[in-house]
């Protein structure tokens, strides 16, 4: 009986992955609502669960691809692979209204640029301090400090190893969680009470899930403004990470 079920799941890998991620999301929604009382956004919890599953899968199989190394969950590799990931990220750009983007104006552009370069410098410096000396690893970890999307996209583009990519995702993830949890508490310090500062916040804080969750818990009306610049943030990071920033790092470390 179990063999039949296992065969059915393994032969429909991608479908199994959809079901698995659905269950993970459902569990994380429950955890978000009852354990953190909505303070930590369910998507952040879902991603943490994903990382934990990757750790479990990696420990059981001894492989390099986390849960995807278990035959039963090989579909996770397809669902979370570069192809569908890039496809879904590009689709999010559809929600950006270019006319509204113009309202953000100069200050939005400046905050977007700073929001990419400043975290990158911090991340790259920390990577250097911890003994990473090759340009590819330093760039990937630095890009991870921008967002947990920019990290793996940059890493895949310049050929970083999987463990460095995982480290950059972990960096971006911790950042997103910090943004979510501490935004409502520090709203006054950040001056988060008008659309303009929300746009600055979205550009600088970056990660869409962190920004939208943080703003939602601060003042719901600010969410679209923060999300607007935050959506550009990932695109800008994906554009700059494997290009300008990588070249700068390569120029510095040789």
């Amino acid at each position: 009986m179990w063999e039949m079920i296992e065969k059915g799941l393994a032969h429909n890998g991608l479908i199994t992955a959809f079901a698995l991620v659905g269950v993970v999301t459902w569990v994380s929604v429950l955890l978000s609502r009852h354990l953190t009382f909505g303070r930590v956004h369910s998507s952040a919890i879902a991603i943490v669960i994903g990382l934990i599953l990757a750790w479990i899968g990696g420990t059981i199989s001894g492989g390099q691809k986390g849960l995807a190394d278990l035959a039963l969950f090989s579909g996770v590799g397809l669902m979370g692979g570069a192809m569908l990931r890039d496809f879904a990220i590009v689709a999010t750009a559809f929600e950006v209204q270019a006319t509204e983007a113009r309202k953000a104006g100069m200050i939005g552009a400046v905050s977007l640029l700073l929001g990419t370069v400043l975290p990158f410098i911090v991340g790259a410096a920390v990577a250097w301090a911890f003994g990473y000396r090759d340009a590819v690893s330093i760039t990937t970890i630095g890009a991870g400090a921008v967002t947990y999307i920019v990290g793996p996209v940059t890493g895949a583009a310049i050929g970083a190893s999987s463990d460095v990519v995982a480290l950059s995702i972990a960096t971006g993830l911790i950042k997103a969680i910090l943004v979510m949890v501490f935004t409502p508490m520090s709203a006054r310090f950040l001056g988060l009470d008008n659309p303009r500062s929300a746009m600055v916040f979205g550009g600088l804080a970056g990660t869409v899930s962190g920004v939208t969750a943080g703003l939602a818990a601060t003042d719901r009306r600010l969410v679209p403004y923060g999300a607007l610049t935050a959506t550009f943030h990932t695109g800008l990071g994906c554009l700059m990470g494997p290009s300008i920033l990588y070249f700068c790092v390569r120029g510095l470390v040789g």
Binding site: T25, S43, V48, G66, L167, I169, S209
Partner: peptide, 25 residues
């Protein structure tokens, strides 16, 4: 589907090795 895909992406990372990276992240 962006967030679900990201969850799947997280689930296939080399977390075991990343944890050896120490407090970098």
């Amino acid at each position: 589907m962006y967030i679900p895909v990201v969850v799947a992406m997280a689930a296939q990372q080399n977390v075991v090795t990343a944890l050896h990276g120490g407090p970098v992240a």
